[in-house]
Design a protein around this nucleic acid. Structure first.
Lengths: 213, 213
DNA sequence: TAGATACTTCAACGAACGTTGAAGATATGT
DNA sequence: ACATATCTTCAACGTTCGTTGAAGTATCTA
């Protein structure tokens, strides 16, 4: 069979993903990345054109896959419920489940990617521009679906609700280990099954609570 | 009256707070900070002993005030409900309201501080150690109060619920401006009154949803 | 196989970084 | 006013940073 050998580009993306997730954009040097990837320093500029383009490429690589899978599931739950609108629980599930599935079944890189995404999402420096470029189109469709599932809610409530929803999600993906410390080991932040069992119910109940406010 | 002139230490803390919030620890240089503060570069090392001690001093200055006010309000809602345990809504309010009040009525520095806190809370580099040092003792009391307000909930549910709660809160404080973009201006992330009206109901409903899961 | 294209290596650039120590200025206490 | 403690200035240290261009090697095309 064909050798599935990683290209230089992939090696760089993998190493950058892991290291950016740990120390952020400014806390990670190209020398650290290229050393971890086992390639020459100058190759970053050859393949990506600089540090920032590399950072954006890291965010967009898996972002595109995530968007695809989310929209696929959104269409699925909508079709299943038609002609009625999909329920809040189903829409929320279509938003969360791809992430949880990637974390449970796919390669370790997704952990770094989501941890990085959590930091980017909460950063004034990157939050608006980078998250928007990759995710706005998809997110707008989910917000629309949430509005249809909660016809009695004001649009402002749904926008704020999405903000809370994504905040709860991203902190859960940040891999800070804080939950483990606070609960003295009773909960483990890497326990995807425990997160899956609780995030959906929490958020769906929260959105309904907002709607009947 | 006595001159309320800011000391060099305060000037440094104020400037560092604002700039760390915008670009993070590694993205902000001491030269940028001292230039903004209008003091000499070497004074950081004289007054704080280095860059990292300055960063920790920034986090702890307002953290201590926040802890004080949160515990004061927690005691208040507990006394008001005694001998019954305080309600989930009241405990959640005691946790959120000090922040919202500081944002609405106090100086602009709190905005930077909370924005910085949001980034720190979601960062693997600082999240566990720095948040823990300043907030763990207080947070544990709130988690205990939440457990008492939700006797039917498993402890794990409350720990995870606290995780979602603080995630929703911190993203709302992060000042990324993303909510404004997504809602095309319909919602403004700096609108504290809008946040106050929605965060409590969302979180309280979410916690109850978790408890009856 | 010859030539062109794609990729990699190597050495170095100027700029910015955190930190330091000695000298100078200011405030304090007697 | 003088001695002392506190604070500030200044110039420089050694590192590390992102980026670059020229030279070398591998890969592909005809």
């Amino acid at each position: 069979m064909a050798r599935p050998r990683r290209t230089t580009k992939e090696k760089l993306l993998d190493a950058a993903e892991k290291l950016f997730a740990r120390k952020g954009y400014h806390g990670t040097s190209l020398r650290t990345i290229t050393r971890a990837a086992g390639v020459d320093l100058a190759l970053v500029n050859y393949h990506f054109g600089g540090k920032q383009p590399l950072f954006e490429a890291v965010l967009e690589r898996r972002g595109a896959l995530l968007n695809e899978e989310r929209l696929r599931r959104l269409a699925e739950v909508r079709r299943a419920a038609a002609p009625a609108p999909a329920s809040t629980e189903a829409v929320v599930g279509a938003f969360f489940d791809p992430i949880l599935d990637f974390l449970e079944h796919a390669d370790r890189g997704w952990h770094s990617y989501f941890s990085l995404l959590a930091e980017v999402n909460n950063s004034p420096e990157w939050g608006k521009r980078m998250m928007g470029k990759t995710f706005n189109a998809t997110v707008k469709q989910f917000i629309e679906a949430l509005m249809q599932s909660l016809p009695q809610a004001a649009p402002q409530d749904v926008y704020w609700g999405y903000n809370f929803l994504t905040g709860a999600l991203t902190l859960s993906l940040a891999e800070t280990g804080r939950l483990d410390v606070l609960s003295a080991g009773l909960c483990r932040s890497a326990d995807v099954a425990a997160l899956r069992a609780r995030l959906g119910p929490f958020v769906a109940a929260g959105l309904r609570g907002l709607a009947r406010r």
